[in-house]
Design a protein around this nucleic acid. Structure first.
Length: 562
RNA sequence: GACUUGGUAGCUCAGCUGGUAGAGCAUUUCACUUUUAAUGAAGGGGUCCUGGGUUCGAAUCCCAGCCAGGUCACCA
């Protein structure tokens, strides 16, 4: 809560005024004729070439009548050289002595015209002929320095500040931008892969009357005109399937989903999934499709199929191993779930020290077993296939085993990255599955799925055999950029609101500063100790009252701090 | 939700068993026409997260709260 501006902010505001007094507009309206990016300069360095570029001053080294500074634009940084007599050829040296040396600061945007040259120590630089102010920064940037060995000093590293003020993070921490460029590359790569195959990118509702397609707690909102509750989508699956019913062969959507659940290193309340549905395919086809997709994406993003994640090196090169869930459990526990009853499974879980409760059915027990004992062991991309039916209410029954479904999940470093089915298109089976979900929710499972009757009606008109795939985009980009936290791959991760800084007028602030140490103050006290007019005192007191900083005590005729 | 670590100058951080608040960078003034973590000299800058308590005295100890990170639990 900064009631007052810091010293540095005050100085910058004073510089702003002085610039205007010198006839220099610190926020000019006209376009600036940039013709080069710093990256182009470095890639095609040509001694003596004239360039016009613009960017932010990131550091300054002033040496009397000549200075060096670092200019940063969208493509990188370059050193500029400013010589007093080059930019001020006439008698008047104000532009250098006052404007550049005194009134400009780190963080300001400037535009420059100059010629390329190499310094005595071999640094490619721009010798400035003309300089213009493009935008004055009123807050000082954190100063991050890098030495000869590339070691970073005083990094801007406080996660709270970095996430709340991502704009600052992006300015001073160059590597942060790369993560987000890769993120966009990933989306573009997927779009290209799908579009090349003729699949159609679509948009489906984010506000849904029935939040379907996944088991999760939704955010709820209200539509005033219709006077009904609406939910932010937790998934878009059921809408994409309606489009398959409608006759599209392949549809996909990058879907911002919203789940009203806990937040941690791998969960943000809003996150992005990609879902794709292709008709006349099954989950075997989809596995091949998925491994080819990921191999393509990894190559597009990183230029290689290999990616480092923590201590692991992952290889996205297809094909990936396929392991049935039954086999996975046998491999890691020695226990065979095949043909076991609910009681036998519960006992097995208990024997292995896994917490279970009565609301858990067979499927949930198997899922726990897998989650506890197996999941973490799959480092390289691995398809886990054939999940129990109870856990997968939208998935087609396995062609060989009625207790299983035709489902796979892709595990990487023990985390689920993708989930896919041979989609359930039997409307009668689908209704029964939904009803089983209803029973589960009555049994205490608070995130079993709702019944979506319109979706069943759509299936009753007939949906071709279809396979669908969902990919957690945030998770995937974490793997491709070696980030352990989802916050690092979202521009603006969710945060609790900052405490509001109390902004006060000058007089209100004076009163606050003078008397906030006491519990209360009277108008007389203000009159006696501060030189403020009666009218101004009244105004300031009203302000403090309306901001609920003080309240007026009618009995004692004093203002009390709340 | 539980446990745990942290919150001190614009930024990064020190601050011992309680005794007038510290450094580096940034900033201000001065010097310096090829520096690059520029350099040299001098100065300014603080609601020590907030509120209580203990104490002659609290950045420091205790309690409560706020915010953030980590671990765990929950969780498509």
């Amino acid at each position: 809560m900064s009631i007052q501006l810091s010293e540095q902010e005050q100085i910058r505001r004073a510089s702003l005024t002085k610039l205007r007094e010198l006839g220099i507009e610190p926020y000019p309206a006209a376009k600036f004729p940039v013709n080069t990016l710093t990256k182009d300069i470095k890639d095609n360095f040509e001694e003596g070439k004239e360039v016009i570029l613009a960017g932010r001053i990131m550091s300054r080294r002033i040496m009397g009548k000549a200075s060096f500074a670092e200019l940063k634009d969208s493509s990188g940084r370059i050193q500029i050289y400013i010589n007093r007599d080059e930019i001020c050829p006439d008698e008047d040296k104000t532009l250098y002595n006052e404007v550049f040396k005194k009134l400009l600061d780190i963080g300001d945007f400037i535009g420059v015209k100059g010629v390329l040259f190499t310094t005595q120590v071999g640094e490619q630089s721009v010798k400035i002929k003309e300089i213009s102010v493009l935008s004055k920064a009123l807050k000082p940037l954190p100063i991050v320095k890098t030495d000869d060995e590339g070691k970073v000093h005083d990094a801007f590293s406080d996660p709270e500040l970095r996430y709340r003020q991502r704009y600052v993070d992006l300015v001073v921490n160059d590597h942060v931008k790369d993560i987000f460029i890769k993120r966009t590359k990933l989306f573009n790569a997927m779009r290209q892969f799908f579009n090349d195959k003729g699949y159609l990118e679509v948009e489906t509702p984010i506000l849904q009357a029935i939040p379907g397609g996944a088991a999760a707690k939704p955010f709820i909102t209200h539509h005033n005109a219709l006077d009904i509750p609406l939910y932010m989508r937790i998934a878009n699956e059921l809408y994409l399937k309606r489009l398959i019913v409608g006759g599209f062969d392949g549809v996909y959507e990058f879907s911002k989903n919203f789940r009203n659940e806990g937040m941690d290193r791998t969960h943000n309340p809003e996150f992005t999934a990609m879902e794709i549905y292709v008709s006349y395919k099954d989950y075997h086809w989809m596995m091949e499709f998925t491994e080819n997709l990921l191999e393509f994406c990894a190559t597009q993003v990183n230029g290689t199929t290999k990616a480092k994640f923590g201590n692991h090196e992952i290889d996205f090169k297809a094909p990936y191993k396929r392991v049935t869930m039954r086999q996975a459990i046998i491999d890691h526990t020695g226990f065979d779930i095949d043909g076991k009853s609910e009681e036998e499974l519960r006992k097995a879980c208990l024997d292995m020290g896994i917490e279970v409760d009565d609301s858990m059915g067979k499927g949930k027990l198997i899922d726990e077993l897998f989650g506890e004992k197996c999941e973490g062991n799959y480092i390289q991309p691995t398809f886990i296939i054939d999940y129990p039916k109870e856990m997968s209410p939208l998935c087609k029954q396995h062609r060989d085993n009625p207790e299983l479904t035709e489902r796979f999940e892709l595990m990487i470093c023990g985390k689920e990255v993708a989930n896919a089915y041979s989609e359930l298109n039997d409307p009668i089976d689908q209704r029964e599955r939904f009803e089983e979900q209803l029973k589960l929710s009555e049994k205490g499972d608070d995130e079993a799925m709702f019944i979506d009757n319109d979706f069943i009606r759509a299936l009753e008109y007939g949906m071709p055999p279809t396979s669908g795939l969902g990919i957690g985009m945030d998770r995937l980009i974490m793997f491709l950029t070696n980030n352990q936290s989802i916050q690092e791959v979202l521009f603006f991760p969710q945060m609790k609101p900052e405490k509001k800084a109390v902004e006060l007028s000058e007089n209100a602030r004076k009163i606050f500063i003078s008397f906030s140490g006491k519990k209360q103050y009277s108008i007389e006290m203000v009159k006696n100790s501060l030189e403020i007019s009666n009218k101004a005192i009244d105004k300031a007191n009203k302000e403090l009252t309306s901001k609920k900083i003080v309240r007026f005590n009618k009995e004692e005729l004093v203002y009390e701090f709340i």
